[in-house]
Structure formats: C-alpha cells, structure tokens
C-alpha cells in the first residue's frame, strides 16, 4: 500500500518522533548506567553514552545477588499466573457466551464487577491469610492470590467467543461433539489470537508485580527480578551499587521487551474484536 507524501504525514512523523524520544528518554539513564563503570556513574547526573563501557556491572550484580535465580523466578511466577488466569477465564468466558443457565447473569456481573478492583484494597486480609496458612515466603503466596483478577479476561473472552458463528458449533454438534470437545476443538483454536494477546498482557502485568512480591517473598533466592532489585539499595546505603542495580534493571526489562516486540501485532489485531461489537 503506497501512501502519498503529504504535509500532514510529515507533521505526524515529527510529532511522534518527539513523543517517542521523550518517552524513551528516561530509560536512557538505565541503559547507560548499566554499562558505565560503577565509580564513574555517580560523577554525573546524566550521560548519553556510557564512558568506557563495561559488562562488569552484570557480573558484579550476579556476585552480590542471585540475579539469575530472580530471572528464572520471574519467568516462572509470571507464566504460572498467566496460565492460572487463562484456566479460570477461558471456560468461564465460553460458558457465558454460549450457554444458557440459571444464575448466568448474576455470576457474570459478580466477576466483571471486579474488573476495576484495585488490588491494594485486598492486600491486608490476603496477607493475613497467607501468614495464617503458613504460606509466607512461598511461591504459592506470590502466585495464587494474583490469579483471580480475571474480570477483564472473562469479559474479553466472552466477547471473543460471542463472535464465533453459531453455525460452526452447530456442525460440530451434529457430528457428535460434546460440550467439552466443542470448547477445546472448535472454540479455543478460533480465538488463539485473543488468547495470545491476553497472555502477553497478563505476563507483562505479572512480571511487574511489585508491592505484593515485596511483602510475601522474603528469602533472597526466592525473589523475582522486580522485587529483588530493591535489595541492591540497602540501608546504610553508603555506597549504592548503581551499576549493578541498573544492570539488573535492564535485565528485568529485556525479556518482557522481547515478548512484547514479538507479540505486539497480535495484541493490536486481536484485542479489538474482543472489545468490539458483535
């Protein structure tokens, strides 16, 4: 598709270039600090390029803290939270879209009303529960309470399933497919784009869980990247290891960035139908 070279488009490019630069700019400090030797970092408040670039900050970070374990923990907890959300919300979204049953509307609103529930509101009782059930400092405590925030997911998958033509399921039913097979073999394969989009969004969200992780993960080896980073800044912060801290910060960004860049097309393409009208 070729497009005319118009003044309007030039202006748009200009504006977006500026906007993108402004948005990315604060991250520049993270990147340059990650590759600048520790003793040079504090000497300037801003640099645009690392002086005598080095990878020493990464090895220093690994020496001080189990950052590779954190990386693995982040991947693990984010994947399990995402999986949990899909397991809860896909069947529910399907049933709300394609089944008629008593109490359906009530159940739907019970779930969807939580879409706007700020997680911090539930934090104290959940924390007490975790402590009382002896789950403090376990992965379960980090993962399980974060899964039920599925209001958006149920709402969205219901929309996606509603858009599949009824005839598709009719044909399968005539072929003798039961409810479960209709769900797994007809419905799911046809909303893969939507599943991919929400998986990525969920993964990114779980990756960045901060307050809750700070609270329930204790052992340094159990932390995730985003919660562990705080360990670099200790109390007598006589010498904050800025380099190691930013190297780890960069490490925490790269995997999600990769996932996002690979999946962003799906997200944009698949998100819309789920929110759009039938």
């Amino acid at each position: 598709m070729s497009r005319a070279f118009t003044p309007g488009r030039v202006v748009l490019h200009g504006l977006l270039l500026v906007l993108s630069a402004l948005t990315v700019f604060p991250l520049l400090w993270i990147v340059t600090a990650a590759f600048t030797p520790q003793d040079l970092i504090a000497a300037k408040s801003m640099r645009f390029w690392p002086e005598s670039p080095t990878l020493a900050n990464f090895t220093e970070a690994a020496r001080r803290q189990p950052i590779w374990a954190w990386l693995w923990n982040s991947i693990l907890t984010s994947a399990l939270i995402t999986l949990g959300k899909l397991l809860l919300s896909l069947p529910a979204g399907y049933a709300f879209a394609r089944m008629r049953f008593a109490g359906r509307d009530a159940a739907f609103w019970i779930i969807v009303a939580t879409m706007s529930f700020p997680a911090v509101l539930a934090i104290i009782p959940t924390y007490i529960g975790v402590v009382k059930l002896q789950m403090f400092d376990t992965y379960s405590a980090m993962i399980v309470p974060m899964i039920p925030y599925v209001g958006f997911y149920v709402f969205y998958f219901r929309q996606s399933f509603l858009q599949l033509p009824a005839s598709m399921f009719e044909a399968a039913r005539i072929d003798g497919a039961g409810v479960w097979r209709q769900f797994t073999q007809i419905a799911l394969p046809n909303v893969m784009g939507a599943i991919a989009a929400l998986s990525v969004i969920s993964f990114m969200g779980a990756w960045n869980i901060y307050l809750w992780g700070q609270l329930v993960l204790d052992d340094a080896g159990k932390k995730t990247l985003t919660t562990g980073i705080a360990l670099f800044a200790d109390l007598d912060a006589a010498e904050t290891p800025w380099g190691a801290l930013m190297a780890t910060g960069l490490l925490s960004i790269l995997p999600v960035l990769g996932v996002f860049l690979l999946a962003q097309r799906y997200i944009v393409e698949a998100l819309a139908p789920g929110l759009g009208e039938k």
């Binding site: 960045n208 960004i253 962003q264």
Partner: peptide, 18 residues
Amino acid sequence: RSALFLPTIVAYSVAGVA
C-alpha cells in the same frame, strides 16, 4: 507504537531510580 509502550514494561523499582 513500541517506543511509546516501552515504559509500561519497566519495573516500578527501576523506573523510580531513573
């Protein structure tokens, strides 16, 4: 699109320092 989305994936603790 990618550039504008970038901050969304930065951890709070890292963003706070920067």
